[in-house]
Nucleic acid binder design. Structure first.
Lengths: 214, 214
DNA sequence: TTCGCCTTCGAACGAACGTTCGAATGGCTC
DNA sequence: GAGCCATTCGAACGTTCGTTCGAAGGCGAA
């Protein structure tokens, strides 16, 4: 195993522990136990606990951005590009829950100087979605509305880590489709043959009609 | 000032500090400084730091639930009740950002026995939305779809604390309307005279048509 | 074998944390 | 004034944290 591979393993183990316990409650001794390395040994690869978090977030975000750009390059039309962006974000999130949870949930856990480069990636990514929305809906140009829609979508997608189980009933791809339809057309079945209604009906035609709050 | 009033002030000050710094990084000495009380003095009102968080979350959630139920009682029709639920959640969130951020962001910061009663409130609240969705859209009955829609909506709404400024360009009521339209009908202008398109157009007819990612 | 370098680690350090304790304060009742 | 109770607090305790340091292990090159 090379140096780089061992660093990579340290980072992904740390991401899993951070995702499970939270960044601040996690101790270097926790990470030592999880990785099998000694307490001091980890400092050969990383300056300290905070750099661990910074590296995890930075690498994860870069991969998300790269994946999004690749998806956009192979998508056609404003609508197709927007759909591709959503699909990529949701599936990537669902398939890398640990890192993405750490990226989403620990967005304020770094010192300002370590936060800055990550915030720059975030600005870039948000602007990317805003420009996709502008291309797809040139008529709905109100700036605040577009921001609300963009952050609404990010909320929908980034909240995944609080409830979603990739091994559960909803596959990552299915979740991406549902969120795409939800964002584009809402829950309301638009027309008798509308896409959202069709998708919903096709999946489970005989589900119970009511569920009581308890 | 009565005992209860002083406890209330301690809780709301603590909520503000927890919202700003996060629960775990906040020290009892931070709270002592923010409240003006002595370090030991706070232990007269509260068993410890964790009970502080538990009380904040429990009281906040109870108020949200009460407000939602009151809203539902004065709403008519399945669609009206669903709209009322969303409007209430968003406006309450926007107007009580500190407590709601602590409720949303520190949902895993309590020990299991302190978490349990709050999780019960949460289950109740989620089931409430699920039943509203079942009433409003009896045709789209697929169970997983309803869950995805519900959690998508909660994500949209609870993500507010990461970006929204109640003093900024979007008033709480306006945000609630936009999220309601977004959830019910999506961003796509449904028809030339569709509600979503009309709302969007009315607010800012001459916004620029493009914005580049940078 | 010897040297030097990359890698690992046991042990310890100083700081900061949540919490406790006993005393002091202030006002009210007899 | 004396006694009592609710309230506040300075000072300290024991623990745990992130980090450091010097030494040791392992291994290829000379």
């Amino acid at each position: 195993m090379t140096y780089d591979e061992r660093l990579e393993r340290l980072l992904s183990t740390a991401a899993a522990v951070f995702a499970a316990k939270g960044f601040h409650p996690t101790t270097m001794r926790d990470l030592s136990r999880a990785t099998g390395m000694s307490l001091a040994g980890m400092y050969y690869y990383v300056q300290g606990k905070e750099e661990l978090l910074a590296l995890i977030q930075e690498r994860c975000f870069q991969r998300v951005l790269e994946g999004a750009q690749e998806t956009l390059e192979s998508s056609q039309g404003a609508d197709g590009r927007l759909r591709g962006f959503i699909r990529h974000h949701v599936t990537y999130f669902a398939e890398h829950m640990d890192e993405m949870k750490v990226l989403s949930h620990e967005a304020e856990s770094l010192s300002p100087q370590r936060q800055r480069p990550i915030d720059q990636l975030k600005r870039h990514y948000v602007n990317l979605l805003l420009s996709l929305l502008a291309d797809a809906f040139p008529s709905a140009d109100a700036r605040v509305e577009r921001r609300a829609a963009a952050y609404g979508l990010f909320g929908m997608m980034n909240w995944i880590y609080t409830w979603y189980d990739p091994e559960g009933a909803i596959a990552p791809g299915a979740l991406a489709e549902q969120f795409t339809e939800l964002f584009l057309h809402g829950v309301t079945p638009a027309a008798p043959s509308g896409a959202a209604a069709a998708v919903a009906r096709a999946a489970s035609p005989n589900a119970p009609r009511r569920s009581a709050a308890s």
